[in-house]
Design a protein around this nucleic acid. Sequence first.
RNA 1: GCGGGAGUAACUCAGUUGGUAGAGUGCAACCUUGCCAAGGUUGAUGUCGCGGGUUCGAAUCCCGUCUCCCGCUCCA
Length: 489
Amino acid sequence: MAQQSASVQLLEKIVSLSKRRGFIFQSSEIYGGLNGCWDYGPLGVEMLRNVKEAWWRAMTHRREIEGLDASILMHPKVWEASGHVQNFSDPMVDCKSCKSRFRVDHLFSEMSEKKLQAIAKHLTVEYRDVAKDALAESLLQKIDSDDALFPSLVESELIVCPNCGTKKSLTSPRNFNLMFETYIGPIKEKGNEVYLRPETAQGIFVNVLNVMQSSRQRLPFGIAQIGKAFRNEINTKNFLFRTREFEQMEMQYFVKEGTDEKFYEEWRERRFNWWQSVGIPKERLKLKPHEKLAHYAKAAIDIEFEFPFGFGEIEGIHNRTNFDLSRHEEFSGKSLSIHDEETKEKKVPFVIETSAGASRGFMALLCNGYEEEKVNDEVRTVMRLHPAIAPVKAAILPLVNKDGMPEIAEKLENDLRPSMKTFYDDSGAVGRRYRRQDEIGTPFGVTIDSETLENQSVTIRERDSMQQIRLPIDNVKNYILEKIGFPTS
RNA sequence: GCGGGAGUAACUCAGUUGGUAGAGUGCAACCUUGCCAAGGUUGAUGUCGCGGGUUCGAAUCCCGUCUCCCGCUCCA
């Protein structure tokens, strides 16, 4: 319990720091905020761009992976083919007595066989020689066909609240659609509804032939995309972790059937290593296989990070088989099969998906970097970000504001600025300025002092160790550039 | 959606029986200063989450609502 409250405090500290220093602000704050929506401030947007850039390079600086940026709005048929129209909409009922809420399908799947048979009898559904799961499924379909049926079950007390047992207390099923809906054109009417995409993957699937032909790729090859997706979740939670609008970094890797398992394992390892390459220690990461697979997947595993509130998913690697492309073939009537030169066959490729959360990754890196350490009996707050991820790369600090130091410092900053994000600070004691930079994760402080005036050398102070070295001022740029490069792996 | 906690300056928080707000940190200016947040002087910043109500008078009492955190529920 004490441990839990410490973790709550930690998250709150990170939220305050994010606001105070300009990483994250609440959306529409002056109007009281909007549930689960957050804005990236000046430092946040720099850092987020760095996260995405690191991912983009790791993905697309490869021979066999191409980039794409698909539209957020897509043809409504896409979401029928993908299964989202059917699977993203869950009928739910509430208990008026104990206020619990249940998914209707869960209600049935947890019933005894005998109970299901009694209900089948009531609904005149054939139940003899029908397996339990199949029976639950056909009952659900029957109920779906007529809105009066579920209330009649409640009225006849065949269904009671599974939580409190109260009779006649369940409401009629209501649909909770997790997709955001809007309209094409200015008039809201049936027939012009479209959805904000609930995942970026489908934009890749529907473009697979366009990409393949224009880039002259052949199997195996991948398509990478970074973009926003939207899910109308019932609840938001945990700062940036569960939000209704979020950004994904997805790569779909198209392979021949039969090689899918090999590539699944390969990408799982590669992605697990990537998170380490941007600064997260292995001990705070976990690979967690899915116990229950989604309708499209043959195998699925999550990469989880140890957030203050516990381990949470930051990326999923899925073997989506040929489900999506086959469905798009079926719904669009267009062939998405690919000709295999070796076997002279046309087949729908299998897909290995790596789907990482940009927003979640950002939050993971903030949580991972945040540290309070004792230095000379004082607490130093330091954000240990990988230099490539840090929003500001170098702070330029004239030791004092005279003797020509500001002029040299400004000249140095002008020299560095085209190649990196810098920050100039000449106010107060230099120690204080270092600490301000520690808090936002700036990896290097460059100080111009009296020795600079004599021999054109400066001090470079490193964030994590607080160690200082002296360097000729002309070497500063190369020294820092070498350290802030994006990881290659 | 249910239950619990919270919302006062940029941040962390005080604010007495109802009498229209303070501290620390931070921020700005000037001076001082010479390498790890601690010198001096001065200064700015408040829809007390928002909207109603009670009252001569509301940060304080009542109602509604929004947001955040925690626990359920949910998370193909």
